[in-house]
């Protein structure tokens, strides 16, 4: 549905995008993740024909963005990062204008009623856009992107500045639309897309640095497994016990535990079953276990590692 081949974009001397290539299949939801300024918005502007790439090709639904922009625009619904709203218009006027500009004609009434329902805009229809709260502004704009029932939805940070309840609302709406529409959803908050997106594209400094399902990406950056254990024992005793465990690569003590308790993060080679081995030691030494769990990278941590891994910080 969406194809980008070696797309580059220069703004003067700065290279905003460097050979970006990816493709999105029909019905897929793509989470487009990267830190601010990584090139997410630029990529989306190229897909929606607002900006032209310096080199490379991009097409949506088989139409080239430079050769045939009108057909591309026809099948895309676009929610830009800066919500494009006319503050002096009423919400109903605004949506009517978009409906006319999108040539809905006979289908207008039905689509209009649908978006108002889907975006929860009933109470705002007769209000001026300028007086709306941020959440309503965002939803009005989302309604604008959905009114023509587009095949492709490009959402640039759709949840920025919203409160948690509104974020869940938008996420649910996106989930409802899934599988009938092709969606690209950008964000700099990884957890936001982790449970909505089929696939995640990670962009950093104008380059695609990760492309795969959430779990695939996580396992890629997680080279070490980690276990946390807290037992009632003397530190020396603990040290001699775990020192010879196979596969332990590193350990770090938790300094916040109370006296007489040893807390420790054990980093190990993911191939070795360190948990079973630890269990045996605990039984042999009759330790009281206070805490014992596998540690998973937090989403934030994996995000940081994903976007830094190219820089060799890993």
């Amino acid at each position: 549905m969406i194809e980008l081949n070696n797309v580059c974009k220069d703004y003067g001397d700065t290279k905003a995008l460097k050979n970006v290539s990816f493709s999105v299949k029909k019905g897929e939801i793509i989470g487009f993740v990267g830190p601010n300024g990584a090139g997410k918005t630029t990529t989306m502007k190229i897909i929606t024909t607002y900006t032209a790439q310096t080199s490379g090709t991009a097409s949506v639904g088989g139409y080239d963005v430079l050769e045939d922009p009108l057909n591309v625009r026809r099948i895309i619904g676009y929610l830009p990062e800066k919500v494009p709203l006319y503050d002096d218009m009423l919400v109903s006027e605004y949506l009517t204008f978009i409906g006319e500009a999108r040539h809905l004609n006979g289908r207008f009434r039905e689509r209009y009623d649908w978006v108002i329902e889907a975006c929860g805009l009933e109470s705002a229809l007769a209000k001026k856009i300028g007086v709306l709260s941020k959440g309503f502004r965002q939803r009005t704009c989302l309604a604008q992107a959905l009114i023509h029932d587009p095949e492709v939805l490009i959402l640039d940070e759709p949840t920025s500045g919203l409160d948690p309840i509104q974020i869940i609302g938008i996420r649910n709406l996106i989930r409802d639309l899934a599988h009938e529409k092709t969606i690209i959803l950008s964000t700099h908050i990884l957890p936001e897309v982790a449970n909505v997106a089929d696939r995640i594209l990670v962009i950093n400094d104008g380059e695609i640095v990760g492309n795969g399902s959430f779990d695939e990406l996580i396992s890629k950056v997680t080279s070490k497994g980690s276990v946390y254990i807290a037992v009632r024992s003397a530190k020396k005793d603990f040290e001699t016990a775990v020192k010879d465990l196979p596969g332990i690569s590193d350990l770090s003590y938790d300094s916040t535990t109370p006296r007489g308790v040893v807390g420790c993060h054990l980093y190990h080679n993911p191939k070795d079953d360190i948990v079973a081995a630890l269990n045996r030691i605990i039984r042999d030494r009759k330790w009281d276990v206070l805490e014992f769990h596998r540690e998973r990278l937090s989403l934030e941590e994996s995000f940081i590692r994903l976007t830094r891994s190219q820089g060799g910080v890993s």
Binding site: Y50, L70, R74, Y78, P84, L85
Partner: peptide, 14 residues
């Protein structure tokens, strides 16, 4: 200023 230029220029209108 409003950013609506992005909306206008991505509508299917010449």
């Amino acid at each position: 200023k409003l950013g609506t230029v992005e909306l206008l220029l991505t509508l299917p209108i010449k």
